[in-house]
Write a protein that binds this DNA or RNA. Sequence first.
DNA 1: GCTGCCTTTCACTCAATCTTCACGACCCTC
DNA 2: GAGGGTCGTGAAGATTGAGTGAAAGGCAGC
Lengths: 222, 222
Amino acid sequence: MARVLLVDDDPAILEVLRIYLSREGHTLLEASDGEQALALAAQADVLILDLMLPKRSGWEVAQILRLEQPDLPILMLTARGEEQDRLQGLDLGAEDYVVKPFSPREVVARVRVLLRRRGLRDHLRFGDLELRPKKRLAYLGGEPLSLSKLEFNLLLTLAQHPGLVWSRERLLERVWGSDYPGIDRVVDVHMVALRKKLGDDAENPRYLETVRGVGYRFKEEG
Amino acid sequence: MARVLLVDDDPAILEVLRIYLSREGHTLLEASDGEQALALAAQADVLILDLMLPKRSGWEVAQILRLEQPDLPILMLTARGEEQDRLQGLDLGAEDYVVKPFSPREVVARVRVLLRRRGLRDHLRFGDLELRPKKRLAYLGGEPLSLSKLEFNLLLTLAQHPGLVWSRERLLERVWGSDYPGIDRVVDVHMVALRKKLGDDAENPRYLETVRGVGYRFKEEG
DNA sequence: GCTGCCTTTCACTCAATCTTCACGACCCTC
DNA sequence: GAGGGTCGTGAAGATTGAGTGAAAGGCAGC
């Protein structure tokens, strides 16, 4: 199914969730402190995150990942009575939380919901175009495309949400990083480069569509 | 913000949530049994649903709405110890739940998350006309419509509140921005353009209705 | 330090879009 | 049925937004 990164400093919790989650068909990654969590996060499809952690709190981890991997769904494990934290967590962008002590079956159910919501895939294909996020490779008609890091990220971001319109601002935030100081016309320039490499025409695009006054979108099939 | 349908048979709960949710800027619809809930659901952007209800249980309601309005996010209110119910609720497709006794702030936060996730409803349909806010796409009889940014925003604003009359002033405020310096007849001009694209006739409109002396409204179904 | 790629800014152009205006039709009141 | 207000609508002009080429700055590897 999916790769689940499980972060808790309590071995008992790790163990019980490991059993339930692997029974569900997931591959498990495990970490017992914030640093390890960050190191492994890039490989995960879902993150189950305890709030109280050595080295870095679950919060910090969530906050950092929010920027690095905004699409990574996070299920937070909180102790009862940490309502304040829970609220902040939700506002921070965590997708969901469970209160300890929890039933493992509930965690499994929530993970299922998170995954269903995201429709995660490791292999994107749109007609002639093929993307492999993991390997950071792109093919056009079977031929490998030579894309710069930025170009790949930009294309991937758009392609992972076909049809969805992205403002330049949101793209800057997502692809360039939230603190990017430059002007938003960079996006246009890279769009031109991408279109050139994809053989796409701005007037009549197959893949990268301009939404005037709003931003860009990856064209939906059909 | 959004229209929240609040369903509970306990007046105290209705009241406290009414206060918090309207403070958050939402418009409230209220029901105290399952029948009323079903009757009002069509108008809602989010549903907050108690499980224990007269006439029809929250479950039944959820199950029915799942089919009728699969896009309507549901936040279920469950009593503690109903874990069984909770799991079934999630599998049923409810988006989320909160356990009583809950903090109203938490409910507000969860509603916010649900709305953010949905983009406040991702799919509007009125007969032949279909709108997808997030994708900024509009279809008429299955054919994509080419709308300018302004036209789309205008149409969306009206369509998100069928039957509601908007004065030109309010439309300017909402669609053009609150500090718009121009004259309000612009609205008329864009209305003409929209009607043309929608194949609508000012005399006898299917969608965009003039309310003489007041403003415009999106015609309600039927 | 040089080379070559990658990224960013800038300037120019063209096209899409928005706004205003003007005119006429219609409606309501007196 | 006259007059004032309201709305529909076409057209002209003003404005904005995006495509794009070129140049300059950065950076990594040699």
